[in-house]
C-alpha cells in the first residue's frame, strides 16, 4: 500500500510540475514601457526577451516567472534616443547587457487580484518589484498580462546630468503581454 502510494506520487509529481509550464509565443508577446520625456509620454519596447512561465491560478504556491531581457533590443521609435539609451548614462549595456526578473512569491490580494513579488536586476541593481498579474486561459492557450511601475533612478538609469525628472520622468510603467501555449 505504502509502495503503491509512493509509486503514484512519483508518477503524479512530474505531471503536477509540467501541468503549469507554458511556452511563450514571442511573435504575439510584447514587453513594453511608457516613460515621459520633456513632458510627453513615449512608448518603448524590448524586442528580445526570454520568459519561463510556470503558472496555474489554482496553485499559486508553485507559480514562477523567470524573465531575461536583452537590453540592447530597446526600441523607442526615436533614433537619437535609441542611440543614447544603451550608453553609459542610461542602460550601460557594455557592463549590463541583460536584465533579469524572477518571482519569489505569488499571493491573492483582498480584491481577488494576483500579485507577484520578485526581484528585478537591472543595470547592476537588484530591487524588489511587485507585478499585478492577469491571467486568462482559453482552451489550450492563455494570455498573461503583467504590470508594474518602476522608478528609473532606483536603477541609476539616467543619473548624474540626466537625473532631472522634469526632463525625464522618474516613473516608468512596464507592461508585459504574453501569449502562452502548452
Amino acid at each position: 500500500m505504502k509502495r503503491m502510494a509512493v509509486a503514484a506520487l512519483m508518477l503524479a509529481l512530474p505531471f503536477a510540475a509540467f501541468a503549469q509550464q507554458w511556452k511563450v509565443d514571442f511573435a504575439h508577446s510584447a514587453l513594453t514601457f511608457t516613460g515621459t520625456y520633456q513632458g510627453e509620454r513615449f512608448e518603448g519596447r524590448f524586442k528580445r526577451f526570454d520568459a519561463k512561465i510556470d503558472y496555474d491560478p489554482a496553485q499559486l504556491a508553485s507559480a514562477k516567472f523567470d524573465v531575461t531581457i536583452d537590453i540592447a533590443s530597446v526600441d523607442t521609435a526615436n533614433a537619437e534616443r535609441d542611440q543614447a539609451l544603451p550608453g553609459k548614462d542610461f542602460f550601460d549595456i557594455a557592463q549590463f547587457p541583460r536584465a533579469h526578473f524572477v518571482t519569489t512569491r505569488f499571493r491573492k490580494a483582498a480584491n481577488g487580484e494576483v500579485v507577484a513579488s520578485g526581484t528585478l536586476s537591472l543595470r547592476g541593481v537588484a530591487q524588489p518589484v511587485t507585478l499585478a498579474v492577469k491571467f486568462s486561459q482559453a482552451g489550450n492557450g492563455a494570455t498573461l498580462d503583467v504590470d508594474t511601475t518602476l522608478k528609473r533612478l532606483d536603477f541609476g538609469i539616467g543619473s548624474g546630468d540626466w537625473a532631472d525628472t522634469s526632463m525625464i520622468g522618474n516613473d516608468v510603467a512596464v507592461h508585459g503581454h504574453l501569449t502562452l501555449t502548452r
Partner: peptide
C-alpha cells in the same frame, strides 16, 4: 523623427 514638441514647455 518622433521628438517631443512643447512650445516653451
Amino acid at each position: 523623427a518622433n521628438f517631443p514638441l512643447e512650445w516653451f514647455g
